[in-house]
Design a binder for these strands. Structure first.
Lengths: 187, 187
DNA sequence: ATTATCGAGTGACAAAAGTCACATCACTGC
DNA sequence: GCAGTGATGTGACTTTTGTCACTCGATAAT
């Protein structure tokens, strides 16, 4: 069951059986249906979520009520409103299922206990944080430097499987353009 | 001299005198003049830089030769082409002085040795990485959800001192718009 | 089976921003 | 002092993108 999580962590830091037993005791499994919310804008953020199966969207809704996709999360990805999670404040985004989804939930208290119990996990999360930072910075650069068509092509190249699971209207909301603009791309 | 670095680190993790002595032995002080490059696009990235005094710009230049500002760095900020630094590959960006600048340089090998010698530093860098990720994500949201005027106002509010030290043409290149568009904002 | 709903494409028009050209002002270096 | 450079603002025009309205086809719900 949680072999998936163990494999995921061990791609960065090796674990003994007892270490992983300890780790897995801090997570809880939850199942959500399509259209259900894991995080509601304006409410506390209960967990950081590790996706076992399914697909999520992290959505920021502006004052005008327009939805912008901050990120997607498919199998083996972590997702949450990280700023709110880590500072224990209210969510500014929502996290919603695009498909029926199974996640492992990690509360902030348990994250801290877990890192205290197995210190090498801080190294794992450091690697994840570096990856997240690099990805975010590359997305900023992509937005600034290339047109819609190339951004869409970069997305196709980087996440080919994800693109096929997500409607184009949501991809447009992720790329920061209207669905019409994305629809009008040559080819 | 390096009290500045110690204070900076101790805002996250407390250090003994011997720990800090160890830490400071891994850094080297360098001075650069306005217009000098700390990182050249296409070359290896020697260091992660901690700014003691001065002001830097991290620049991505696209195929058309247009410059885009990925970030600025003033006193007590860390800056480098992180993706290239951490993976020991060639830089895709340049890091250049906007003012005469003093930095503490940390090579990747020394970063690793230092973290091995003083493990709690991984926690410090984890905090920095989380901050960097959150900032980058908020910048993405800002770009997607609000117009130029509000982005500029958010920048003013978040980094009031920095804005005064940087020409508006560079701020425009940071915000992702032409300098004319920024210049034409009402008020 | 027949309504709804959703995803997707398209035309017409408006709004926003980019590009190019030019003018001004402050500062630097000789 | 004076020429050169860089920062800034502005007008004119073009290009891109957003918005609104409509259509079509596939899928889901009853």
């Amino acid at each position: 069951m949680t072999k998936q999580l163990r494999d995921h962590i061990e791609r960065v830091v090796p674990l003994s059986d007892t270490e992983f037993e300890m780790i897995s005791s801090f997570f809880s499994l939850k199942r959500y249906k399509k259209h259900q919310f894991l995080i509601q804008d304006g409410e506390p953020v209960p967990c950081n979520f590790f996706v076992l199966k399914g697909l999520l969207k992290l959505v920021y809704t502006n004052d005008a009520g327009k939805e912008h996709i901050v990120g997607f999360a498919q199998e083996d990805w972590w997702e949450t409103d990280f700023a709110a999670y880590y500072t224990e404040s209210k969510a500014t985004m929502s996290l919603e299922c695009i498909e029926d989804t199974e996640v492992l939930c990690l509360r902030l208290i348990d994250y801290k206990k877990m890192c205290a119990a197995v210190p090498k996990l801080e190294h794992f999360f450091l690697e994840k944080a570096y990856q997240g930072f690099i990805s975010a910075q590359q997305r900023i650069i992509s937005t600034m430097t290339v047109g819609i068509k190339e951004r869409y092509e970069q997305l196709l190249k980087k996440y080919p499987t994800l693109v096929q699971r997500v409607p184009k209207s949501l991809l447009a909301a992720y790329l920061g353009v209207s669905r019409e603009a994305l629809s009008r791309l040559p080819q």
